[in-house]
């Protein structure tokens, strides 16, 4: 397969299919994440990257046989390793002996959140999730350091208006429909954010959905209009605030005499403290994910637009 666009679309279809088999295995939260990240936003970012670099793959000079041999050896070693693992769904597996029963039986008393996945992700394993958020933040910083677009001259509003008028004829239907849809997408993102305690959802998915609404707006109304709506430096500050908020919750519980990320220290009633902690943590995750996605997209797409800015204005 040499056409990179087709490869990206195939990857997206694979993401959607794996989301549906996660649903079939009753892992609704994972399916939600896979559908929004794997099928949605990563495909979008890949398409932006392809539009920057070109559709065709470069002919490779190296021999593929060595790589194939390495892959086959590692793959067979991994498969050999799985032979020692307990069978899928077997009751004697270590995971079903002490961890899973603890989560299923006690999480309602300890955390008081109906969605066990959220209580595991945000409270029992808060440190892991903190690591994930820091990884996302670092990715955003890396993109910023490598691809940061230098803003040379402030674009005047007359040019933006001109560009918008030129686009308006060509994408009239798309523009109107997205204008109707964007508020609902944003509302859905907030629903996913704050409903994560009760149903599938949470900060990661909500951030991605929020960012995708901004992507759609940017695609149809142009980079410069979107830049006027969303301040670049403000969104960078937001990404940092998300990570800080997450870390601060841990530090506050440390100061209150409990362990790092032990939210029961946040309020007098331990369960209320857990609720508060999960709320703040999901907020931090959502802020960081949304703003990092927007930073990555803006830097990818802005790089694409800068050299061609002049001839687009001629249209």
């Amino acid at each position: 397969m040499k056409d990179l666009l087709a490869v990206a679309m195939l990857l997206s279809i694979y993401g959607l299919l794996s989301a549906s088999f996660f649903v079939a295995m009753d892992a609704v939260d994972v399916a939600f994440t896979e559908a929004s990240v794997g099928a949605g936003i990563s495909t979008l970012l890949m398409l932006v990257a392809i539009s920057m670099t070109g559709r065709a793959e470069h002919p490779s000079r190296h021999k593929p046989l060595l790589a194939l041999a390495v892959v086959i050896v590692t793959g067979s070693l991994l498969i050999y390793g799985t032979l020692d693992m307990p069978y899928f769904g077997s009751a004697e597996a270590p995971i079903h002996q002490h961890i899973a029963p603890r989560y299923i039986n006690d999480s309602m008393q300890e955390i008081g959140v109906p969605n066990i996945v959220t209580s595991v992700l945000a409270s029992y394993r808060a440190f892991d999730t903190f690591g994930e958020v820091v990884v996302i933040f670092t990715a955003g910083m890396g993109v910023l350091a490598l691809l940061s677009v230098v803003r040379r001259s402030p674009v005047d509003i007359a040019k933006i208006v001109l560009f918008n008028d030129a686009m308006h004829e060509r994408h009239l239907i798309l523009r109107i429909v997205t204008k109707i849809m964007i508020p609902f997408i944003l509302l859905f993102a907030f629903y996913v954010q704050f409903h994560g305690d009760f149903g599938p959802g949470g900060g990661f998915q909500a951030g991605v959905i929020f960012a995708s609404a901004i992507f759609v707006y940017t695609m149809l109304f142009g980079m410069n209009t979107a830049r006027r709506v969303i301040n670049q430096s403000f969104i960078q500050v937001l990404a940092a605030i998300g990570v800080l908020l997450y870390g601060c919750v841990g530090v506050v519980s440390l100061f209150n005499g409990k362990k790092f990320f032990d939210y029961s220290a946040l309020a007098i009633d331990p369960v209320a403290g857990q609720h508060l902690g999960i709320l703040f943590i999901e907020l931090g995750v959502g802020l960081t994910v949304a703003s990092v996605m927007v930073i990555i997209f803006f830097n990818f797409a802005g790089r694409n637009e800068t050299p061609r800015n002049s001839d687009k204005q001629d249209l």
Binding site: I173, L174, V177, I180, M181, F184
Partner: peptide, 13 residues
């Protein structure tokens, strides 16, 4: 309602 909006628009695009 969402599908009624989105899928004709996608077809048009």
């Amino acid at each position: 309602l969402m599908t009624l909006f989105i899928s004709p628009t996608a077809g048009h695009a």
